[in-house]
């Protein structure tokens, strides 16, 4: 088994929930999100990856966007969670916590 491939697939699978978690603390623009993720061990992504995910989350109604003038460049596009996004994120985080607990139990040799 190629460990690196597995890690890449795992990271890709988690990107949606990672981005939604970033946005739960308030509005953010794509560039800012990339910079934040760069500093978190294990969550560094290819910079371009964030934009198709944000576009898909918008289509799903979980995220919305708007533009604001920027003092140091063209108008900046900000993303924020919708009400549906907040609810979905809560469900996703609950599921994620459940998986973590189950994995811990499994590692300790307990039946899940």
């Amino acid at each position: 088994m190629n460990l690196q491939n597995w890690q890449t697939q795992l990271r890709k699978g988690l990107l949606d929930v990672v981005i939604l978690n970033l946005l739960q603390h308030g509005r953010c623009h794509g560039y800012e999100m990339v910079q934040t993720l760069k500093q978190i061990d294990g969550l560094k992504i290819r910079e371009g990856n964030i934009y198709p995910i944000l576009a898909r989350l918008q289509t799903d109604g979980l995220v919305t966007s708007y533009s604001e003038p920027s003092p140091d460049g063209p108008p900046r596009k900000y993303f924020k969670l919708t009400e549906l996004g907040q609810k979905t994120l809560a469900d996703m985080n609950a599921h994620w916590n459940h998986i973590i607990q189950s994995m811990q139990s499994l590692k300790k040799g307990k039946r899940v």
Binding site: G30, Y31, V34, G48, Y51, L54, G73
Partner: peptide
Amino acid sequence: DVSSHLDR
């Protein structure tokens, strides 16, 4: 978005 990111 990618174009803006690259500009930045």
